[in-house]
Simulated assay, not measured.
Amino acid sequence: MITLSKHQRIGLAWAGVAAALGLLLWLLAPVLAPFIMATVLAYALAPAVQALADRRVPRIVAVLVVELLFVMAVLALLLLVLPILNQEIPALREQVPALATAANQKLVPWLSAHGIHLQLDPASIKAFMLKYLDANLEDWLSTVLSSARIGGSFLLALIGNAVLLPVVLFYLLHDWPQLRMRAWALVPPAARGPVGSFLTECDAMLGQYLRGQLLVMLVLAAYYSAGLSLAGFDLALPIGVFTGLAVFIPYLGFGLGLLLALLAGLLQFASVYGVVAVAVVFGVGQLLEGFVLTPRFVGERIGLSPLMVIFALLAFGHLLGFIGVLIALPLSALAAVAVGRLRRAYLASALFR
């Protein structure tokens, strides 16, 4: 019979509580998604609210100002996509059939010579474009909802979350100091020393990560805008700013920006120049981000290899959907702190004496 010490029993009890909470989060992920997102945003925005409150601004006013500025920033980022769609959708209707004809004349023979048989039908592509790209927004929305078999419930859920998120964020920011005190009061007095040290290290890592990531986003937004502008892109500014700011979502943000840039290059130049220009600008941008900006501004504090980053994004995305992708790296950084402490404790244990 195995006899456990008091500390081991307490550790197992906390591990059981953590496992139960993890299971509950997984089961209630669709319902908890706006609350999790609001909590992450509250953690990021709380220092700005506290800075205004320290300057004798009433806390409710500070919360309203910070949240309003954040909502305006998000709306501005979303509005960057509108001029892209406004120009590219008509161009798609006109250029895609012509591109298909050119591909049939130049690309298809080359592929056939290498054993790849492909045939495009420009007439069918043109009919498809005229059918769907001439439709208005209401027709598009109706088609998407009916084809996905989700009906009005999806739209209601989307609107509900859009309304719920800022409301939850407001109350979290307003009550943030009290919430922290209540959470701290739940920690047993005997464990407050190591728990406080752990939380301080986590807070320092997350703070450095967020500040560094913000600098990386701003520099990349300026770079992509300037690079695409020098290449002659009409939509250089909206695509560049969107790509730079969207890199906050690793890989996914860069991929969306690259897709928009490739589409804009093909439609504007209708030649291989657009693809080459995008490849050069985005290739240099990846090198700049990976070898200069991220090591300099974010550093190695997160302690994750690129392979682990991809795994974290896939794992959290599978468990929590899009919200999981957003919080994958911050939570992985916290896990890295915990693993580092466990490793140091293990190496300092009696097994290595």
Rank of each mutant, 00 (worst) to 15 (best):
P166G: 05
P166S: 09
L165I: 03
V195R: 01
T200N: 13
A162L: 15
L186N: 00
P166W: 04
V187N: 00
L206C: 06
F154M: 13
L133I: 02
Y132P: 00
L164M: 12
A183W: 10
R192H: 11
V167Q: 00
Q178Y: 00
G207P: 04
D203H: 13
A185G: 10
D139N: 07
L206R: 01
F170E: 03
G196K: 04
L169V: 03
P166D: 11
S142L: 07
P189D: 12
S153N: 12
P177W: 01
R180A: 12
L165C: 05
V195I: 13
K131F: 12
M181C: 00
F170T: 09
P177C: 05
Y132C: 00
L133S: 07
F198I: 03
L186Y: 03
K131S: 15
V144I: 15
P189L: 07
G193A: 11
L133A: 12
L133K: 03
P189I: 03
A135T: 04
G160V: 07
K131T: 15
R211C: 10
S197Q: 13
L199E: 03
G151P: 04
V163Y: 02
T143R: 11
F170Y: 12
L145G: 08
L179E: 02
A204M: 07
L210G: 08
A190L: 14
G212V: 06
Y171R: 10
L145I: 08
H174E: 11
L164V: 09
T143D: 12
D139E: 14
G152Q: 09
I159R: 06
D175M: 00
A183Y: 04
G212M: 06
R192M: 11
L155C: 05
L173W: 02
D134C: 00
L145M: 14
T143I: 10
A190E: 15
H174V: 06
N161Y: 07
L158F: 13
L173C: 06
V167L: 14
A190T: 13
R192E: 13
L165M: 08
T200H: 12
E201L: 09
H174T: 01
Y209T: 06
L186G: 02
Q208H: 15
L156H: 13
S197M: 05
T143H: 12
W184Q: 11
F198V: 01
N161A: 09
D175E: 06
F154E: 09
L173N: 02
L186R: 03
Y171V: 14
S153A: 15
G207R: 05
Y209W: 14
R180V: 10
A204F: 05
W176R: 02
G160C: 04
V167C: 04
L206V: 08
K131V: 08
P166T: 04
V187A: 02
G193M: 07
P194R: 04
L137M: 14
G193K: 08
W140T: 10
V144E: 00
S147E: 13
G212Q: 04
R180Y: 05
L169F: 06
D139A: 14
G193E: 14
Y171N: 09
L199P: 03
V167M: 07
R192W: 12
Y171W: 15
E138L: 10
P194L: 05
P189W: 01
L164E: 02
L133N: 06
G212R: 06
R149L: 11
D203W: 08
I159G: 11
A204Q: 13
G212H: 04
W176E: 07
